[in-house]
Amino acid sequence: MKAHLRPAIVSLLLLSAITGLLYPLAVTGVGQALFPKQAAGSLIEAGGKTVGSELIGQNFTSPRYFWGRPSATGPMANNAAGSGGSNQGPLNPALVDAVKGRIEALRAADPGNLATVPADLVTASSSGLDPHISMAAARYQAGRVARERGLAPAQVQSLIEANTEQRDLLVLGEPRVNVLKLNLALDQAH
C-alpha cells in the first residue's frame, strides 16, 4: 500500500505546484511583460486620475453625454462582478416593457429626433458590460449632445469619427465607439 500511496502523493504535490503556482505565475508575468496596459485592466486616465476601463461600460445619464448600452447587471449598473445577460427572450414581457421604457426615455431626452432608435441603445449586450455603441447609436445621439453642449453638429460628428474603432483584424465585428473615450474627448473639446 505504501508503495502506491507515496508516488500518488508526490505526483499530487508536484502537479499542484506546477499547475497551481508555477504556470499561473509564468502566464501572469508574460502577460504583464508583453501587454502591460491590458494586464492592468486597460484603464483610462484623465487629469491624472483613473476614470474607468476601456473594457467596462459606464452609466452616463446626463443629456450632455453620449449614453451607452443598457446594463444587464442588476442591481448596480455595469458591475463587472455581475457580468451576464438578462436571459430575457424576445417574447418576454419584461424585456418588451424595458425596451419600450428605454425608447420613451430616449425620445423624451431628444423629442425632435424622429430617427429610428438603434437596437443597441435599448438592449443590453450578452455580458451586460459593453463599453461600445454602434456608429448608428452615436449618430442618433449626436444632435442632442451638440445642442446640450452648444457645439456645432459637425464638431460632434468629427469627435465620433476620431473615436471610432475599426473592425478587429479588418474583418471581425463592426466599427464601434467607446462611450467613455468619446465623452472624455467631448469634455476636452468643450
Score class of each variant (00 low, 15 high):
residue 103 I to D: 14
residue 88 Q to Y: 10
residue 94 A to H: 08
residue 65 Y to Q: 05
residue 129 L to N: 01
residue 92 N to S: 12
residue 61 T to M: 12
residue 78 N to G: 06
residue 66 F to R: 00
residue 68 G to L: 02
residue 108 A to W: 06
residue 69 R to V: 02
residue 69 R to P: 02
residue 135 M to D: 10
residue 110 D to W: 03
residue 87 N to K: 10
residue 116 T to Y: 07
residue 116 T to L: 15
residue 76 M to D: 14
residue 77 A to S: 14
residue 130 D to F: 00
residue 66 F to D: 00
residue 117 V to K: 06
residue 86 S to G: 09
residue 60 F to M: 05
residue 120 D to C: 07
residue 87 N to A: 15
residue 111 P to G: 09
residue 129 L to R: 01
residue 71 S to R: 05
residue 75 P to T: 07
residue 88 Q to C: 11
residue 95 L to D: 03
residue 97 D to A: 14
residue 130 D to T: 03
residue 92 N to Y: 10
residue 89 G to L: 15
residue 111 P to E: 11
residue 99 V to H: 05
residue 106 L to I: 04
residue 74 G to M: 02
residue 134 S to T: 14
residue 104 E to Y: 04
residue 140 Y to N: 02
residue 111 P to F: 03
residue 63 P to E: 08
residue 114 L to H: 13
residue 136 A to Y: 03
residue 80 A to F: 07
residue 99 V to C: 10
residue 89 G to K: 10
residue 119 A to E: 15
residue 64 R to I: 02
residue 66 F to K: 00
residue 61 T to P: 04
residue 76 M to P: 04
residue 118 P to F: 08
residue 88 Q to R: 15
residue 65 Y to S: 05
residue 89 G to C: 12
residue 66 F to T: 00
residue 129 L to I: 12
residue 110 D to H: 02
residue 96 V to N: 09
residue 129 L to D: 01
residue 77 A to F: 11
residue 127 S to E: 13
residue 65 Y to W: 07
residue 118 P to H: 04
residue 84 G to W: 11
residue 69 R to F: 04
residue 59 N to D: 15
residue 111 P to A: 12
residue 86 S to R: 04
residue 97 D to N: 11
residue 86 S to V: 03
residue 120 D to S: 04
residue 87 N to F: 11
residue 65 Y to H: 05
residue 123 T to W: 04
residue 73 T to K: 01
residue 140 Y to Q: 01
residue 99 V to D: 04
residue 126 S to F: 09
residue 117 V to W: 08
residue 85 G to S: 13
residue 72 A to C: 09
residue 120 D to Q: 10
residue 95 L to R: 11
residue 137 A to Q: 02
residue 94 A to F: 11
residue 113 N to H: 05
residue 124 A to K: 00
residue 133 I to V: 14
residue 137 A to F: 01
residue 113 N to A: 05
residue 87 N to E: 13
residue 140 Y to C: 04
residue 127 S to D: 15
residue 78 N to I: 07
residue 65 Y to R: 04
residue 72 A to I: 05
residue 112 G to H: 14
residue 132 H to P: 01
residue 95 L to E: 08
residue 123 T to V: 14
residue 133 I to K: 00
residue 128 G to N: 08
residue 123 T to D: 12
residue 140 Y to V: 02
residue 67 W to M: 00
residue 84 G to Y: 10
residue 67 W to V: 01
residue 121 L to E: 01
residue 73 T to S: 10
residue 78 N to Q: 12
residue 115 A to C: 06
